[in-house]
C-alpha cells in the first residue's frame, strides 16, 4: 500500500534580519539555510495496517504525512502510495485517500454539517447509494444524527472532530491519514473516536496512519509503531517490542511482613522501599518471573505481590528525553 525508500525532504529557511535595516536586507538578499525535515526514511505499510507514527514536535511527522498525501514534493527518495507517486498525480491520488488534520477543520464553518458532507459528496463524486449508506453507518457509529443540522461553528470540539472523520471517509478511501485526531478532547470523546477508527480499520480494511501525542491512542489502536526523531526513524515495529526494548523492565511490588535488611536476588534490583513495601526492578526481558517469585516466597514472608508492566508513556518519555539529552 505504501512504499517509502530513503525519502528526504529539505526545506530552505530564508534568513531573517531584524530591525529596519534588516528589513531592507531581507528584501535584497536571499540568504538561507537548509533544514532536513525528513532525512532518509524507509518503511513499508501493508493494506489494512493501523500504524502509529510518533515523534516529538518538529520530528518530521507532518512533513512525512504531507508527502504521503501529495501536498509536498520530496527532495529525493522513492515514494509510492497505492500504486502512485502522490505529488505527480495529486488529484487522482486525492480521490483515494482521506485525511483529518485535528487542528483544522475541512468543513464549512457557517453551514450545517450535512451541507458540508453534501458538498464533499459532489467533490468526490460519491454515488448516491454509497453516500446514503455511509451517512447511515457514520450516524450510528459517531452519533452524527444529533448535530447533522447544526452549523459547524456551534459544534463542540468532539462533535467537530467526529464530523471531520465522517467527512474524510465519505468517499470510501482505501487509506486514511489522521493527524492528531484526538487533540484537545475529553476522555469520553477520545474513546468514541478511537472506537470508530478501530471499527473502520477492521471492518472496511481501511489502512490508517495516525500521528498523535496521546499514547492512549497508540495503546488502544496501534499494533505497529513507527517512531521518528529529527527526520530519522528511531524505531519501527510492534508496540510490545518498543515497550520491551526501551522500557526499564517490569517492576515487582512486594509487601513484606517485615522488610528484609539486605537483598540479593539474581535478576532483580531494589529500586526503592517504603515501610514494608519494596519495588524491585526485574532486569532484562529474558528473566522468568516464576523462579524469582518462588525464591522470594521461600526466603521471606510475603503478604502481597504485584507486577507492573512498563507504561508506554514512560517508555516514550525516556526516548524523547534521551533525545533532549543528546541534543
Amino acid at each position: 500500500m505504501i512504499e517509502v525508500r530513503e525519502l528526504r525532504k529539505e526545506f530552505r529557511i530564508y534568513r531573517h534580519h531584524r530591525g529596519g535595516l534588516g528589513a531592507l536586507r531581507n528584501l535584497v538578499t536571499r540568504e538561507y539555510r537548509s533544514v532536513l525535515a525528513v532525512d532518509g526514511i524507509t518503511f513499508d505499510i501493508k493494506a489494512g495496517e493501523l500504524v502509529g507514527y510518533l515523534g516529538p514536535n518538529g520530528a518530521g511527522k507532518s512533513t512525512t504525512l504531507k508527502m504521503l498525501t501529495g501536498i509536498l514534493v520530496p527532495t529525493s527518495g522513492h515514494l509510492v502510495v497505492n500504486g502512485r507517486v502522490p505529488h505527480e498525480q495529486r488529484k487522482q491520488h486525492a480521490r483515494e485517500i482521506g485525511a483529518v488534520f485535528g487542528q483544522r477543520t475541512t468543513l464549512w464553518w457557517d453551514l450545517p454539517v450535512v451541507e458540508s458532507l453534501d458538498l464533499l459528496r459532489a467533490i468526490y463524486r460519491v454515488p448516491a447509494d454509497r453516500y446514503r449508506a455511509n451517512l447511515a453507518l457514520f450516524g450510528d457509529l459517531l452519533g452524527l444524527g444529533e448535530f447533522l443540522d447544526t452549523p459547524v461553528r456551534s459544534l463542540s470540539l468532539g462533535q467537530r472532530m467526529r464530523a471531520d472523520l465522517a467527512a474524510a471517509l465519505l468517499h470510501d478511501p482505501a487509506l486514511l491519514f489522521l493527524d492528531e485526531p484526538t487533540i484537545g478532547l475529553d476522555v469520553v470523546a477520545k474513546e468514541r473516536i478511537r472506537g470508530f477508527i478501530k471499527t473502520v480499520n477492521r471492518e472496511r480494511g481501511t489502512t490508517v496512519i495516525l500521528t498523535t501525542h496521546d499514547l492512549g491512542d497508540v495503546e488502544k489502536l496501534c499494533e505497529r509503531v513507527i517512531m521518528i526523531d529529527r527526520g530519522k526513524i528511531m524505531f519501527d515495529g510492534a508496540l510490545e517490542t518498543l515497550r520491551r526494548r526501551f522500557g526499564q523492565g517490569r517492576v515487582l511490588v512486594v509487601d513484606f511482613e517485615q522488610l528484609p535488611d539486605g537483598f540479593d536476588f539474581p535478576g532483580a534490583e531494589l529500586m526503592r522501599a517504603e515501610g514494608n513495601r519494596a519495588w524491585l526492578r526485574v532486569a532484562g526481558e529474558g528473566t522468568a518471573l516464576a523462579p524469582l517469585v518462588a525464591d522470594l516466597f521461600r526466603q521471606h514472608r510475603v503478604l502481597d505481590l504485584s507486577v507492573q508492566e512498563p507504561e508506554i508513556e514512560a517508555v516514550v518519555r525516556r526516548i524523547y528525553e534521551g533525545h533532549l539529552l543528546e541534543a
Partner: peptide, 13 residues
C-alpha cells in the same frame, strides 16, 4: 494565510 490552501490542494477540484 491560515493554510487552508494545503487542504484544498488535497481535493480533486
Amino acid at each position: 494565510v491560515k493554510g487552508a490552501i494545503a487542504v484544498d490542494l488535497a481535493r480533486p477540484v
